[in-house]
Computed example of a mutant assay.
Amino acid sequence: MAPLPELRSAIFLDFDNVVSGLREGAGPDVALRFAQQPEAWLDRLLQDRPRRALIRRCYLNPAGVLDDEEGSRFRYAEFRWAFMAAGFEVIDCPRLTRLKNAADLRIALDAMEAMLSSPGLDEFTLLSTDSDFVPLLLRLRAADRRTRLVAHPEVGRIVRAASDEVIGLDTLASWLGWVPAPQPGASFGAEGRADVLGVVRDIMSEAQDPVHVPHLGQVVRNRTGQTLRGSDFAGYGSLDGLLTAAGGFIRRDGPGGGHVLRPEWADQSPSA
């Protein structure tokens, strides 16, 4: 059998998105290993067939934070050098608004530019669970480019159908030494409830002011495709239960459903 031809590949990593998914599905230590040792998973990502990763880009919000199991806090900016040492160009994507950074937009624009300016690229690999990338994946396929997506193992059928290959975050976690265990807060699956929990945690960690409950629900729906109520509040049965599990956040009653506050804001008045 003739050897497979070498693929010329491009990799685009939505760092914040993947770290959040690994943290919720496999635990903070696996997420930290992903951030500190990119060579450990990058080699596995590239080795299934001959390929050269000609473009390697990592998009991150330098102000983001990751807490390990012992309570130590790491800013995403601290992981920049590890990715540069693995051959990545690191692109800062601070928040465009108080709840969303620019990574998905930058990735879509850069991937399209790479497709148009580098006709020799055979394959595009996206690491993100964001359903916003479906139009990009379809456009790349229409241009006769092979696509791979590294995403949550329960990514929706529409997203899965848009990519030639889907690699689950659970597989990525296994490359980093994760072994599935029936323990709360560290399991991929559960009908995507971990996604809802993680998004709520991310929203509140990034917020600068109390967050209106309807706005919280809308952002969760935009990012996960699920509603708070439809996910049974990430399996916790109530908004208050979800907020407690996500980080001890507090719901304050008020017009239109009230606001959600971080614990340190308990004495503040909600924003209009």
Results as ranks from 00 to 15, higher is better:
S128G: 11
A102L: 09
D122E: 12
D92R: 04
L109M: 07
M112R: 07
S131G: 01
M115E: 10
S118E: 12
S163F: 08
S131R: 10
S128T: 15
N101D: 15
A173R: 13
P94M: 10
V159W: 00
D110P: 02
A151S: 15
A173K: 07
V134A: 11
A103G: 06
P94Y: 01
K100M: 09
L140F: 03
M115A: 15
E78Y: 06
L127V: 05
V159C: 07
A181P: 01
A186Q: 09
P135I: 09
G120F: 14
A82P: 08
E89H: 02
F124M: 04
G189C: 01
L140K: 03
D110N: 05
L149P: 07
I158M: 13
L126S: 02
D170V: 08
S128V: 10
L176Q: 00
V134L: 03
M84P: 01
S131T: 12
R145V: 05
A85R: 13
A143Y: 10
G192Y: 05
T147N: 09
L138K: 11
G177P: 03
G185P: 10
A142L: 14
L116Y: 11
G185K: 01
T97N: 13
V166R: 02
A173P: 03
P94I: 14
D92S: 15
W175V: 03
A151P: 04
V155I: 15
G189A: 12
A111Y: 12
D170Y: 12
D132F: 04
L169C: 06
V150L: 04
G177F: 07
S128D: 09
W178T: 05
A186S: 00
G192M: 03
P135Y: 06
L136G: 08
D104G: 11
C93W: 03
E154S: 11
A102M: 13
R160L: 11
H152K: 10
S118C: 09
D122Q: 05
